[in-house]
Design a protein around this nucleic acid. Structure first.
Lengths: 165, 165
DNA sequence: TGGGTGTTTATGGGATAGCATGGGCCGGTA
DNA sequence: TACCGGCCCATGCTATCCCATAAACACCCA
C-alpha cells in the first residue's frame, strides 16, 4: 500500500488542477491502481482525505466486520463511500479538484497536502496552519515527547504478550 | 538499527547540502535502507530529529497500539509523519536540508549533529550550546549521577520481572 | 622515527533531468 | 455556438548527478 509522508503546498490553477506531489506519485506507483486516487470530505475536519485503491479495499473489508456497530457502519457507508470521488492523474501528475470538495475544504488558489501514512489530507493552507498551531499547544501543555509515546506503546505490547503466555 | 553517537559540526553549502558524518554513515550501512534518512522537526526543541527506516518502522508500529489516546495518535500523525521528509544521500554522503526544516531549526551556514543512539538531532550550533548549558545546570541542581540512574533502572526491571512470575 | 604515499572525508561548482505550473488545442455536449 | 473536460506542449525552477579539490588521516617503508 502507498505511504504518504511530508507536507507540500501546491497551486490550484484556473482550471482547478493541482499537481500531486512527486513523492506521493512514486508511492502510488506501487498501488494496484496507480493512476487513480480517491478523495472524500474528512469526517473530523474541514479538509479532504485521500487514499489509493488498496486502502479503500481494506476499509471496505473492515465494514464486513461483525465488531462494528450498525450506526458506525451506517456513517461510513454514507459519509465515506457516499462522498468518495475517484480522480485520475493526467500525464503531468495532476488531478482536477472536484468543485464540491474544494468548496467543502475552502480551498482556493493553493492547497496543502499532508501525508498521514496510509492516507493524506488536503487543506486550505491557512486552515492547516491554524490546526497545527492548536495541536502544538496541546503537545506543550501535555508535555508530550516522542520517546515517551514509543515507550508507552511498547510497554503495552509487552504486557499483552505476557497475558498470552 | 543504526546507532548514532558523538557530536559533529558540518557546513551547509549554498545549495543547502550537508555532509552526514562518516560515523553516522557507517552506522546507517546496517540499516534496511542505507541510502535514506528521515528528518522531522523535534516536538520539544527548535531542532530537527533524524533516524533510519528501521526506527520509523518501530514508530509506525507504535501507532497501531491500542494504548495510545486518539489525540496522541493524531499528534504523531500530524507532527511526525506529516512533517517527515525522506532524504537520500548523494554519492558524497550528503543530504539536502529541506528548506522548511532548516528554517524551523534556524540552521544557516553550519549544523551540529548530535547522536542520540537510535536517532540524532540537528541544531544550529549556538542553539545547541545554549541547550547543553541549560541542561548541565539542571544536572548540577538536581544532583544527577550516572550510577544512580543505572541503579534505578535495574531496580525497576527487577520489580517488573517479579510481577510476571 | 620520519617522510612519503594512498585513501577517506568534507566541501565546492557545473551540467542535466525532473517537477510544478501555465497555456493552447480539439472533441464532445448542452 | 458556447462551454467544459481531456490531452499535449512549453517554460522556469529546483534538485540530482557527476567531477574536482583540499585537508585529515592512516599506513608503509626506509
Amino acid at each position: 500500500m502507498a505511504v504518504f509522508l511530508s507536507t507540500y503546498v501546491n497551486k490550484v490553477d484556473r482550471k482547478g488542477r493541482v499537481s500531486i506531489p512527486a513523492q506521493f506519485r512514486q508511492s502510488l506507483a506501487k498501488s494496484s491502481l496507480p493512476g487513480t486516487i480517491y478523495l472524500w470530505p474528512s469526517l473530523n475536519h474541514q479538509a479532504l482525505e485521500g487514499a489509493d485503491q488498496d486502502y479503500l479495499d481494506v476499509l471496505s473489508d473492515s465494514l464486513e466486520s461483525p465488531d462494528l456497530d450498525a450506526d458506525e457502519r451506517e456513517m461510513i457507508e454514507t459519509f465515506i463511500f457516499g462522498k468518495l470521488v475517484p480522480v485520475s492523474l493526467d500525464n503531468e501528475g495532476r488531478i482536477v479538484l472536484p468543485r464540491e470538495l474544494a468548496e467543502f475544504a475552502n480551498i482556493g488558489e493553493e492547497a496543502s497536502f499532508i501525508g498521514r501514512r496510509k492516507t493524506f489530507q488536503l487543506w486550505e493552507p491557512n486552515a492547516l496552519k491554524a490546526h497545527e498551531a492548536a495541536l502544538r499547544d496541546q503537545v506543550v501543555r501535555k508535555d508530550i515527547s516522542l520517546s515517551q509515546i514509543v515507550a508507552k506503546a511498547q510497554r503495552g505490547a509487552a504486557g499483552r504478550a505476557g497475558e498470552g503466555a
